[in-house]
Amino acid sequence: MISINDRKFLTEALKVSKRLDGRSMEEQRPMEVTFGSQFGHVELTMGKTKVVVRISAEITKPNERRPFEGIFVVHTDIGSMASPIFENNHQSEQEIMISQVVEKAVRRSGALDLESLCIVAGKKCWEIRADVHYLDFDGGLVDATCAAVMAGLYHFKKPDVDVDGGAVTVCDMEERHPVALSVLHLPVSVTYGLFELKNDETNEVEKVECVLDCTAIERQVQNAEITITINKNRDICQISKPSGVSIEGYRIVELCEKAFQEALKVTEMIDKALKEDEEMRNKGNWKALLSAENDRYEK
């Protein structure tokens, strides 16, 4: 909860384009990604928000309606470790909202090629599971989750399988090189908080300010929020604005353009982190030794 004084202070500051943590209106907190020793273990920090994602794979039976596709599930469960405002084993409205937006951004945007997860049509397929653990909460959960899950999917490698007729053997990770997932694109979520700034005397709404990446305190004051999921190819995967203050159409187009710039930055950050991790794992250049690829040269 937030006191009336704090609320007033925050909105007054916004009127003169100032934020509590000194950021500008359109400044995202820098994200930092670190990978664990195992594939698909990602730790992402964004300001004080901290998220851990574990990607895992297991063989199951595919959905009967979609025999040629694998299964991808995202589990987002916010416990009281993130903040005491969340209850354990009980989903609040806010939590459900977050998990739905994440679901749309990551799963329904078709980021993961589900058909490549099929092993034997209608019988066996991979189930890729992303477990998201929220360690610390300071706003921006959707953005952080989306980036962390995508980084995890890029980082994860599943064991290779051999299909001989109907029999499937899973090869040991040490015996055969594990295979990466086929990720089609990298959707990035960008969330803006909308604040109604009122005139002190007339109490009329002067303008609606869009503020990027709200912290937990700012979230409590905001009148609405809008999440845009976009990738570096300028494909908009979703625009989600559940209830709250209204905003003109042209401003949403403007926001999308700004979100695209943010998406570029996040994509670059994830790419860089992945590359660094790859280099660290590739010490001694064993990858070149294991490769069966011939040198290609032009005639």
Partner: peptide, 9 residues
Amino acid sequence: LQIVIQILE
């Protein structure tokens, strides 16, 4: 007293 243990690895 609320205690949450998260196993990471």
